[in-house]
Design a protein around this nucleic acid. Structure first.
Length: 198
DNA sequence: CACTAGATTTTCT
DNA sequence: GAAAATCTAGTGG
């Protein structure tokens, strides 16, 4: 296993589509306590631009809820959806420019027992193959909204220095009614932990 | 396997 | 009041 070194701020301070594609294959890390750490390989994400993207929460300008998307890159954006699930994003683009990468699925690597307890299932394939599922498994709630993911804290992205080559598939994003003209959902081809195949 | 409905809460109109 | 970047259980083939 790699040492868990966070990706730097400059990684996120770029256009959101590049960050979304480049972040595939790296590690999502959640430190629960001193003896429990949960790690998953990022296998599926979506890009939300903000300015020209009607599906983005930042499309209609700054509000108290979305102002974090206009802030510093590398910060976590967590919000509640459908009254019962949390969704995780990381802010991209330089400060002042909106953009975020939405995490849809990861491949469980470490802390699998912890995740199975939280998800109340022992089906590895269905543990973290969806945005709401992975936040339950990783115990990600609104308390982590605003967490700096470039620091080795409770929640961050760690570099996978042994990242192998893989093909990236791009499709329209899921669960939205506008912005379908952009193929901004990206996932690792042939990975079993992607939420929805073709 | 495919499809449908229900759960439940924050935010903006 | 309606919609929302979802998931699960239930029904029917």
């Amino acid at each position: 296993m790699n040492k868990l070194i966070p990706l730097s701020r400059s990684f996120y301070e770029r256009d959101v589509v590049s960050v979304a594609k480049d972040i595939l294959g790296h590690f999502l890390v959640r430190k629960i306590d001193s003896s429990t750490i949960v790690v998953g390989k990022i296998v599926e994400v979506e890009a939300y631009n903000g300015k020209d993207d009607p599906a983005s929460h930042a499309y209609k300008g700054v509000t108290p809820k979305n102002k974090i998307i206009f802030g510093k890159p590398g910060i976590a954006y967590v919000y509640m959806i459908y009254g019962m699930y949390y969704c995780l994003n990381v802010i991209t683009e330089p400060e002042g420019i909106p953009g975020s990468v939405f995490f849809r699925a990861v491949e469980p690597l470490q802390g699998i027992k912890y995740m199975m307890q939280r998800r109340k299932t022992d089906n590895l394939l269905k543990l973290t193959n969806g945005p709401g599922k992975l936040t339950i498994a990783f115990n990600i709630t609104e308390k982590l909204n605003g967490t700096d993911m470039t620091k080795s804290g409770p929640l961050f992205i760690a570099k996978n220095k042994d990242k192998n080559f893989f093909e990236i598939i791009s499709t329209p994003r899921i669960g939205i009614r506008v912005g379908l003209e952009y193929n901004w959902r990206f996932y690792i081809r042939d990975n079993a932990f992607v939420s929805k195949k073709k």
